[in-house]
């Protein structure tokens, strides 16, 4: 049953090893419990002639043994699992980012060069891929059983998942967090292709690169009216801001990361940068998550201005 499941990512084999080991351990212990139960039931059934002298009702040694031995076994299993867990949660620095936006009831994917797809995800063989995911509406969960990976996709924040595909082919993508009427139909396909074919597949798209698309949106939504250098309105300069720390109006400091940029666009009143009037409108219901991703790509592409005014506050 276990070997029949395709093992199509770098995690599949180590996770299956651990699963098999657990199956062997827990199976043996359960079997032991059943055998002892059955044996006692037969041997000490009423009417049997088994020796019942000196029936004990407490033995401290036994109690300590069956407290400590399971505990030590559990610590061992825990250590093994944590080793795998840190691997699952630590993507290599060079992992290729792909953005995923979930909504009732579809998966929308955006690749580095701007190529988009729906209910499908193409990934190169043997290249670490990092999915950065958010949801338009309710909580979904990105689940590829044949990769043994799963991560909830939560509105209002970015969650991430990484893997290296190790086998060519098509694998089902499922939503595993109940998300409403068509939850069971929120399916997709992950296609693993040779790295070269993937590069060609990427190029076969006519879409703009995310940063360029973001620039267009930046103008279209009126962001540029305040945030472009040289605009007449006092608003934070966005050049080079990504990855820095900013001082907030309420006295806290915040790192400008994906989550911060996302919230600064959607609900700017929440964590406002010190020194600016709260005049930016909330874009919450006016812009969808994919456009936010494009805007972020644009903001990230802006290089820091070579001016002296940048020293104190990174706006």
């Amino acid at each position: 049953m276990i070997a029949m499941q395709p093992q199509a990512s770098n995690f599949a084999v180590p996770i299956d090893h651990m699963f098999d080991a657990m199956l062997a351990l827990c199976g043996t212990v359960s079997l032991g419990v059943f055998v002892v139960m059955f044996w006692f039931c037969v041997k000490y059934r009423r009417g049997s002639h088994a020796d019942r002298e000196g029936r004990a009702t407490q033995k401290l040694g036994l109690e300590i043994a069956w407290t400590l031995i399971p505990f030590l076994l559990f610590v061992g299993i825990f250590a093994w699992s944590i080793d795998l867990w840190t691997m699952l949660r630590t993507p290599p620095a060079d992992a290729m980012p792909i953005y995923v936006v979930a909504k009732q009831w579809m998966w929308k994917v955006q690749h580095t060069n701007g190529r988009r797809e729906i209910d499908a995800l193409h990934v190169p063989l043997g290249v670490p891929v990092r999915l950065i995911m958010t949801s338009e509406d309710v909580i979904h969960s990105f689940y590829v059983p044949d990769f043994r990976v799963k991560q909830d996709v939560v509105p209002g924040r970015y969650t991430a998942l990484w893997f290296t595909a190790t086998k060519l082919g098509d694998y089902p993508l499922l939503c595993s967090e109940y998300c409403g009427t068509d939850h069971a139909a929120m399916l997709g396909t992950v296609t693993v292709m040779p790295a070269k074919d993937y590069q060609q597949w990427l190029k076969a798209s006519a879409s703009l690169a995310p940063a360029q698309a973001g620039r267009r949106l930046f103008v279209q939504f009126g962001c540029s009216g305040c945030h472009d250098p040289g605009s007449g309105i006092r608003a934070p300069d966005l050049r080079g801001v990504y990855g820095t720390q900013v001082q907030l109006a309420d006295g806290r400091r915040a790192s400008v990361d994906d989550r911060y940029l996302h919230d600064a666009i959607m609900l700017p009143a929440g964590r406002r940068v010190a020194g600016y009037a709260p005049i930016m409108p909330a874009y919450q219901s006016r812009i969808d998550e994919e456009d936010v991703l494009a805007l972020m790509a644009y903001i990230k592409s802006l290089k820091a201005a070579p001016s002296e005014a940048e020293a104190g506050h990174a706006h």
């Binding site: 002892v36 006692f40 039931c41 000490y44 019942r52 033995k59 399971p70 610590v75």
Partner: peptide, 30 residues
């Protein structure tokens, strides 16, 4: 939360083993 979840399994295991030991040298009626 993982290690705490293993911890809660310890007293559960104690219970199962004690029930098994209760069967030992009993006069079992089914």
């Amino acid at each position: 939360f993982s290690i705490l979840s293993f911890a809660v399994a310890v007293p559960s295991a104690i219970k199962v083993f004690n029930w098994l030991a209760t069967l030992h040298k009993g006069t079992i009626v089914f």
